[in-house]
Design a protein around this nucleic acid. Structure first.
Lengths: 194, 194
DNA sequence: TGTACATCAGTGAACGCGCGTTCACTGATGTAC
DNA sequence: TGTACATCAGTGAACGCGCGTTCACTGATGTAC
């Protein structure tokens, strides 16, 4: 049962999309090839007609997830981004949340090729966040970049730490709220003195 | 070949200690029971004389790792702690680094019992960091706690994000340096306005 | 436009492998006398 | 203090299982005429 070219493309895209979600929910080792294919409505045997290996799909799914996050960020301002990022909804739904927050720990133990995808994703996200700042001044640009790197790490840390706490634990919510207030405060305040 | 009571205790402690390191280096799914036992100089069959299951050891190894971090923090002040935490040495040696930074992502997908160990570890670390502040004032105490939660999340995020980048990538170092400067700046400055 | 045939995405059984866990056995330890 | 024996940490083979990957096969698609 061969299938139209359009169908092939669509199937492949669906595999990547489902993988992107499932990996975020359960980690790279937490989902098998068979389950991934089943989630896309296919059987596992056809997997290698689309991808060289599971690691291959991991890289592609990460790229997709990171691109999606970037796209979601493009339209809103930094304050809205932070409010949404540091919400309980985001923390409790890793599957359609930030790929960095969900998979950074896993990425650290993956081959360089996957780490490269993450680094590119971070740079891309930074470019979008910085773009709200339209200055021409070089030192102001550097300042804006540093601020955004800092904000990103701060936000990722809050989500990651909050997710490591038991469901409904007060500490999990406290981490989120404290960090949200702090990050928003910093964004409002002038550059920190050196 | 039975073994003295002291030897039994020592063997068990060695298993937990090695597990604590290996899990931090390669994640909970990245190390098997056989390898864990071999690292402790034993064969895999005896594992279940010491632990009910691998998950059991995971919880104990996490507790050990978190307790160790707390102990290491007890003697030094917050600035020294931050400088050490956000160093390339720490980033590049997860095996004897912070358990939170190394395993938070994994913990998020583990049973509640392990998440509880993490939450307890976070509280313990907070207690130590807050203790440098010796005020009696209730609102100042709350302020100190919030600051330390914030600092911890910030620092964890920086390490986790930096580790997801390729080895020797400029971005990995940039993240570390930017966050270190920022965190130290905040610790020096007065409480952020609300 | 209609026919004949090569292509190749998808199927499902099978592969070897490493995992967590169980088990019968060993033999020095530690206890009872 | 010396002897006899029960205990149980440690061994290494074996278990079932699910994993990533391979393979012979299918049959509609898309191409060549």
């Amino acid at each position: 049962m061969k299938v139209t070219k359009a169908q092939v493309q669509e199937n492949r895209a669906r595999i990547v999309a489902m993988a992107s979600v499932l990996f975020r929910e359960r980690g790279y080792d937490g989902v098998g090839v068979a389950e991934l294919m089943a989630a896309a409505g296919l059987t596992h045997g056809g997997f290698y007609k689309h991808f060289k290996s599971k690691a291959d799909l991991m890289a592609e799914a990460a790229a997709e997830g990171l691109a999606q996050s970037a796209a979601n960020t493009a339209d809103i301002d930094v304050v809205a981004f932070v409010n949404q990022y540091l919400s309980r909804q985001h923390r409790d739904a890793p599957g359609d949340g930030c790929t960095m927050a969900a998979l950074c720990g896993d990425a650290a133990r993956q081959p360089e090729s996957i780490k490269a995808v993450f680094a590119a994703g971070i740079e891309r996200q930074l470019a979008i966040l910085e773009s709200s700042n339209e200055t021409e001044d070089e030192s102001a640009k550097r300042e804006a970049r540093a601020r955004m790197i800092d904000t990103m790490a701060h936000a990722v840390g809050a989500i990651v730490l909050s997710r490591a706490c038991p469901d409904d634990s007060p500490l999990a919510d406290e981490i989120l709220e404290v960090c949200r207030a702090q990050i928003l405060g910093q964004l409002r305040s002038p550059p920190a003195p050196i």
